[in-house]
Design a binder for these strands. Structure first.
Lengths: 117, 117
DNA sequence: GTATTACATCGACAGAAGTGATTGTTATTG
DNA sequence: CAATAACAATCACTTCTGTCGATGTAATAC
């Protein structure tokens, strides 16, 4: 697939002169990139992505035991995935009696979403 | 942080009767989730995220040797990250003489971006 | 009290991933 | 031709990640 922008070819440097100085720089700084990459990494698993999909449209409606049969994984593994989502700041939970209700933290996905758009 | 929706608490099941049937389901199916998770995973590294940030605003302008000094990693490691982005279908490259020009594939991020929004 | 249920934590394991030194490949220069 | 430059590929190493079985904990039911 060709690209639609003009290439700006370089000429070979004279011997001894090292490669090009950078001419462009990232717009997102390092700290921002680390934050967004952490969120992206947490979403980088199909099960976690579907979990977030369920949770953000049914906050407070589903307990963990209802989530387990949605995926072909064991309960400890699901618990682990929820932990990873929590560590990334994407979800949090509330306990009511025997049941735990997870929900997506509002605006947790906003920075990444804005950058992607 | 409390949630703003009403919880729908369950009552304990009678002995022997196993846990709740799922009442809600993901809206994104498995195949879709695998695709998007693959993209998210590739973005789940600060360097790769900044790489995409540079490339999508300067397609065809930067050769790899200009990218190396932007990050504190070796050239083979940068090459490895570019390979991962390519494997995820996010970027592709074109060779011109000694130089390789990477660019972000149009719409490669669209599905994930749309789901996040 | 005991039994049971929902969920978390721990331990272990295989496979994936990030890193760099070294080597290989291709193209340009002289 | 030889020398050099840009980039990719290989190898080795360490750390991280997904998975499950077993165990632990807290709450409810009897």
């Amino acid at each position: 697939m060709p690209i639609d922008r003009e290439l700006t070819p370089k000429t070979k440097r004279p011997p001894g002169e090292r490669c090009c100085e950078p001419v462009v720089y990232p717009e997102v700084d390092r700290v921002q990139a680390i934050r967004m990459a952490e969120v992206a990494k947490a979403l980088g698993d199909p099960i976690r992505l579907q979990l977030v999909d369920v949770l953000r449209r049914h906050a407070g409606e589903v307990c963990v035991c209802e989530l387990v049969p949605l995926f072909e994984i064991s309960q400890p593994t699901l618990s682990h995935h929820l932990n990873r989502l929590r560590a990334a700041g994407i979800v949090d939970s509330e306990r009511r009696g025997l049941w735990a209700y997870y929900y997506v933290i509002p605006d947790a996905l906003r920075e990444l979403s804005a950058w992607l758009a």
